[in-house]
């Protein structure tokens, strides 16, 4: 059984890591302890610190998009208000609830891993993955509507009057709508990409859980993947009101 070296940033853009060559453990400690760590708590603390640093990096990655949003909203508030009415608040709200629920199940999965209940952890991880797929499906329908309505970024922005929201039918087509939808597609697109990566990593952790690698002494990977998933939910918590609810 390969040692489950806790490599913190289990997610996002770097390529898959080559699995650690099985280190011999002649009396070095429990099997999940990597050779270069002295105690399990040192390994756990290192993993958590590494993950928080990775989350810090993700936050700043998204901060660029939020700054972009703030600058363009401060320049063209009317265009943003017009464009925000084109977005479907119901679908956005539903997505928010779906993600919040998946955050709950992820947190409960960590709790059950901590108490060593392997079956419950597996089931909760599967529910979280299901919620993630639900989120992507809702997102797909939203994107289809945008393409039909011609609400596309930059110079592809040619709104089709029939598909526009009733409340804005009589308003003129904004000149900077292209910029809003550029920002909209970048924000929701990059966030959606992180959801997809989240699904991949959670499935990997689910496999390791089914293989029985985790126990009451060693549940760090479940905790780390839950941290990542909570961050993805955190980003959406800000995305939803800022994009969908401009009155």
């Amino acid at each position: 059984m390969s040692t489950a070296t806790t490599d913190a940033p289990t997610a996002s853009l770097e390529e898959a890591q080559p699995d650690a060559a099985p280190q011999d453990h002649g009396g070095h400690g429990p099997k999940f302890l990597a050779h270069h760590f002295d105690t399990p708590v040192q390994q756990f603390d290192a993993a958590k610190l590494g993950m928080w640093l990775f989350l810090a990096q993700e936050l700043l990655f998204f901060s660029g998009l939020f700054v972009l949003y703030s600058v363009y909203r401060s320049w063209y508030p009317a265009d943003f208000s017009w464009a925000s009415h084109q977005l479907n608040r119901f679908m956005g709200g539903a997505n928010t609830i779906v993600l919040l629920f998946s955050s709950l199940t992820a947190a409960l999965a960590v709790r059950s891993a901590q108490v060593g209940d392997r079956k419950k952890t597996g089931m909760l991880l599967l529910v979280t993955i299901a919620c993630a797929f639900a989120f992507l499906v809702i997102k797909y329908f939203e994107y289809v509507h945008k393409f039909e309505a011609g609400l596309l970024p930059g110079d592809r922005f040619h709104p089709v009057a029939a598909h526009l929201a009733a409340s804005t039918r009589d308003l003129p087509i904004p000149q900077h709508g292209g910029s809003f939808f550029g920002i909209y597609f970048m924000m929701t697109g990059v966030h959606g990409l992180h959801v997809i990566i989240g699904i991949g990593v959670m499935f990997w952790i689910w496999l390791r859980n089914q293989r029985g690698e985790f126990s009451e002494q060693f549940w760090t990977p479940v905790d780390l993947v839950a941290l990542y998933w909570h961050l993805v939910d955190l980003i959406w918590i800000y995305l939803f009101p800022l994009l969908y609810l401009i009155d």
Binding site: T39, P40, V41, Q42, F44, Q217, F218, T220
Partner: peptide, 12 residues
């Protein structure tokens, strides 16, 4: 910095 007592195990 460590949060746990001396046996080196992880107590969450």
């Amino acid at each position: 910095e460590h949060t746990s007592d001396d046996d080196g195990a992880v107590h969450a």
